[in-house]
């Protein structure tokens, strides 16, 4: 396994300010956290709710910015990028899966998956369609290509969302409680899928979960407690 870090956090501090009437309440979510994730790693970030794990994931994906400290992706400091550069970077290097599928309701499964490729003209419509069809077929959705999200079950929706996250061959797949909304049977399908992806293609995956069973399937567990790195265990 290549241990060259693909994600690196250095002394990251994140505060959230909440305006309550006239006064501003500052809530420190991550006081000071540093760690790195290597290429091909399959990492779970665990911790109780409110510990700051989702915020951590958003910072890694450039969806949010730290108050101080730096976040590096593939050697570039993404915490210093503009919104526009971040959008471009995400399109080129990242794939996201959220707790909710967040598929665009007006588009079919196939179109949702094709979108990251078409958004910046990364591929023509024909190539994008081909790639998306392959991915959806791999995920067992070959008969649901033209269904709209509301015509799919929860598990199917989440699999479409995963296909969308993978369509542009991202360097890192970031997942925020991807099974949080699924029953155990569907959750199991997603676990297997993630493991297979990591083993077969060497896909770097960082996922946030409070499901110990799911975390146990990964190679490394970062446990977060009150915004601090509580433990860093390598499995297998």
């Amino acid at each position: 396994m290549n241990t060259d870090p693909v994600i690196k956090l250095e002394h990251v501090r994140k505060e959230l300010s909440i305006r309550n009437g006239g006064e501003e309440l500052v809530n420190t979510i991550l006081p000071d956290i540093s760690f790195s994730i290597g290429r091909g790693e399959f990492t779970a970030i665990t911790g109780p709710s409110g510990s700051g794990k989702t915020t951590l994931l958003y910072l890694m994906g450039g969806l949010d910015k730290p108050n101080s400290g730096s976040v590096y992706l593939d050697g570039e400091e993404i915490s210093a990028m503009s919104e526009e550069d971040l959008a471009e970077m995400r399109n080129a290097k990242l794939g996201f899966v959220y707790q909710f599928h967040f598929l665009l309701p007006e588009f079919t499964a196939l179109e949702n998956v094709m979108m990251p490729l078409l958004a910046r003209g990364r591929a023509g419509v024909g190539d994008a369609r081909k790639r998306a069809t392959e991915l959806l077929s791999d995920l067992g959705l070959s008969d649901k290509l033209h269904n709209k999200p509301n015509q799919l079950s929860g598990g199917q929706q989440q699999r479409v969302a995963i296909a969308r996250a993978l369509v542009n061959r991202p360097m890192v797949l970031l997942a925020d409680e991807p099974t949080g909304n699924l029953d155990s049977k569907n959750a199991e399908v997603i676990y297997t899928l993630f493991s297979r992806l990591n083993e077969e293609t060497g896909q770097t995956i960082v996922l946030v979960t409070h499901d110990d069973h799911f975390a146990g399937e990964t190679r490394r567990i970062l446990h977060i407690l009150d915004g601090r790195l509580d433990s860093d265990r390598k499995l297998r």
């Binding site: 994906g61 969806l63 919104e83 526009e84 959008a87 471009e88 970077m89 995400r90 399109n91 080129a92 990242l94 996201f96 967040f102 665009l104 309701p105 979108m115 990251p116 958004a119 910046r120 969308r164 542009n168």
Partner: peptide, 16 residues
């Protein structure tokens, strides 16, 4: 708005 955020998170440019 939510769709806008999702599209942006998948890399759709602000201009688009």
């Amino acid at each position: 708005q939510r769709d806008i955020a999702i599209m942006k998170s998948m890399g759709v440019s602000i201009r688009s």
